[in-house]
Measured scan of single mutants.
Amino acid sequence: LNLKQAKEEAIKELVDAGIAEKYIKLIANAKTVEGVWTLKDEILTFTV
């Protein structure tokens, strides 16, 4: 999975969960695949 694909998957998951745009922007700015997954997990843990 490359960075672009990771971001697309994570953003789709966050949108489906009804997460606010400000958190989705954090994913869009992530620099690594690991960073994308870590941010996604943290956002889902603390906002859902």
Results as ranks from 00 to 15, higher is better:
1 L>P: 10
1 L>Q: 09
1 L>V: 11
1 L>S: 10
2 N>H: 11
2 N>C: 09
2 N>K: 09
2 N>Q: 12
2 N>T: 14
2 N>V: 10
3 L>K: 01
3 L>V: 05
3 L>Y: 02
3 L>C: 04
3 L>G: 01
4 K>E: 13
4 K>H: 09
4 K>G: 07
4 K>P: 05
4 K>R: 12
4 K>S: 10
4 K>N: 09
4 K>C: 10
4 K>Q: 14
5 Q>V: 07
5 Q>E: 09
5 Q>G: 05
5 Q>S: 08
5 Q>N: 08
5 Q>I: 09
5 Q>H: 09
6 A>I: 06
6 A>E: 03
7 K>H: 03
7 K>P: 00
7 K>G: 01
7 K>M: 14
7 K>Y: 05
7 K>A: 04
8 E>V: 10
8 E>S: 08
9 E>K: 14
9 E>I: 14
9 E>S: 12
9 E>A: 14
9 E>C: 13
9 E>R: 14
9 E>T: 12
9 E>W: 11
9 E>N: 07
10 A>M: 03
10 A>S: 03
10 A>N: 00
10 A>G: 02
10 A>D: 00
10 A>H: 00
11 I>W: 05
11 I>V: 07
11 I>H: 03
11 I>A: 04
11 I>T: 07
11 I>L: 05
11 I>D: 00
12 K>F: 04
12 K>G: 04
12 K>R: 13
12 K>Q: 09
12 K>W: 04
12 K>N: 06
13 E>W: 08
13 E>L: 12
13 E>R: 05
13 E>D: 08
13 E>I: 14
13 E>G: 05
14 L>H: 01
14 L>V: 02
14 L>Y: 00
14 L>P: 00
14 L>M: 05
15 V>A: 09
15 V>D: 04
15 V>Q: 14
15 V>S: 09
15 V>W: 07
16 D>Q: 14
16 D>Y: 08
16 D>F: 12
16 D>K: 15
16 D>I: 11
16 D>M: 14
17 A>W: 08
17 A>C: 08
17 A>R: 11
17 A>D: 02
17 A>N: 07
17 A>Q: 07
17 A>G: 04
17 A>K: 12
17 A>S: 06
18 G>D: 04
18 G>P: 00
18 G>F: 04
18 G>L: 04
18 G>V: 02
18 G>H: 05
19 I>F: 06
19 I>Q: 02
19 I>P: 00
19 I>S: 04
19 I>E: 01
19 I>T: 05
19 I>L: 07
20 A>E: 13
20 A>V: 06
20 A>R: 05
20 A>F: 04
20 A>I: 06
21 E>C: 12
21 E>W: 14
21 E>M: 10
21 E>H: 09
21 E>S: 08
21 E>K: 08
21 E>R: 09
21 E>P: 11
21 E>Q: 08
22 K>I: 11
22 K>Y: 13
22 K>P: 06
22 K>C: 14
22 K>A: 08
22 K>S: 08
22 K>V: 11
23 Y>E: 02
23 Y>A: 03
23 Y>T: 02
23 Y>F: 11
23 Y>C: 09
23 Y>D: 03
24 I>W: 14
24 I>K: 03
24 I>M: 06
24 I>Q: 06
24 I>N: 02
24 I>C: 06
24 I>R: 05
24 I>F: 09
25 K>R: 11
25 K>M: 13
25 K>D: 08
25 K>I: 13
25 K>H: 09
25 K>A: 12
25 K>N: 09
26 L>D: 04
26 L>P: 02
26 L>S: 04
26 L>F: 05
26 L>Y: 05
27 I>C: 02
27 I>D: 00
27 I>V: 08
27 I>M: 04
27 I>H: 00
27 I>G: 00
27 I>S: 00
27 I>N: 00
27 I>E: 00
28 A>G: 08
28 A>C: 15
28 A>T: 09
28 A>P: 02
28 A>H: 15
28 A>R: 13
28 A>E: 15
28 A>V: 10
29 N>D: 12
29 N>L: 12
29 N>H: 11
29 N>K: 11
29 N>G: 11
29 N>P: 02
30 A>E: 06
30 A>K: 03
30 A>H: 01
30 A>G: 03
30 A>N: 01
31 K>E: 11
31 K>Y: 06
31 K>P: 06
31 K>Q: 13
31 K>S: 13
31 K>R: 08
32 T>R: 02
32 T>G: 02
32 T>Q: 02
32 T>I: 02
32 T>P: 00
32 T>D: 06
32 T>E: 03
33 V>E: 04
33 V>Q: 03
33 V>N: 02
33 V>P: 06
33 V>R: 03
33 V>S: 03
34 E>T: 07
34 E>C: 10
34 E>G: 05
34 E>M: 06
34 E>P: 05
34 E>F: 06
34 E>Y: 06
34 E>H: 06
34 E>Q: 08
34 E>A: 06
35 G>R: 13
35 G>I: 12
35 G>E: 15
35 G>P: 00
35 G>T: 11
35 G>V: 11
35 G>C: 15
36 V>I: 06
36 V>M: 03
36 V>A: 02
37 W>C: 07
37 W>A: 11
37 W>Y: 10
37 W>L: 15
37 W>F: 11
37 W>Q: 14
37 W>S: 09
38 T>H: 14
38 T>Y: 13
38 T>N: 12
38 T>E: 15
38 T>K: 15
38 T>I: 15
39 L>D: 01
39 L>V: 06
39 L>K: 05
39 L>I: 10
40 K>S: 04
40 K>V: 15
40 K>Q: 05
40 K>L: 15
41 D>G: 07
41 D>V: 11
41 D>R: 09
41 D>H: 11
42 E>R: 14
42 E>V: 11
42 E>A: 13
42 E>G: 05
42 E>N: 07
42 E>W: 15
42 E>L: 15
42 E>D: 08
43 I>Y: 05
43 I>D: 00
43 I>K: 00
43 I>L: 13
43 I>S: 01
43 I>P: 00
43 I>M: 05
43 I>V: 05
43 I>F: 07
43 I>G: 02
44 L>C: 05
44 L>T: 04
45 T>L: 13
45 T>I: 11
45 T>H: 14
45 T>Q: 15
45 T>A: 14
45 T>E: 13
45 T>W: 14
45 T>P: 04
46 F>K: 15
46 F>D: 08
46 F>P: 06
46 F>M: 15
46 F>N: 15
46 F>R: 14
46 F>C: 15
46 F>E: 07
46 F>Q: 12
46 F>L: 14
46 F>H: 15
47 T>F: 15
47 T>V: 15
47 T>L: 15
47 T>P: 10
48 V>Y: 08
48 V>S: 13
48 V>W: 06
48 V>P: 11
48 V>T: 13
48 V>L: 10
48 V>F: 09
48 V>R: 13
48 V>Q: 14
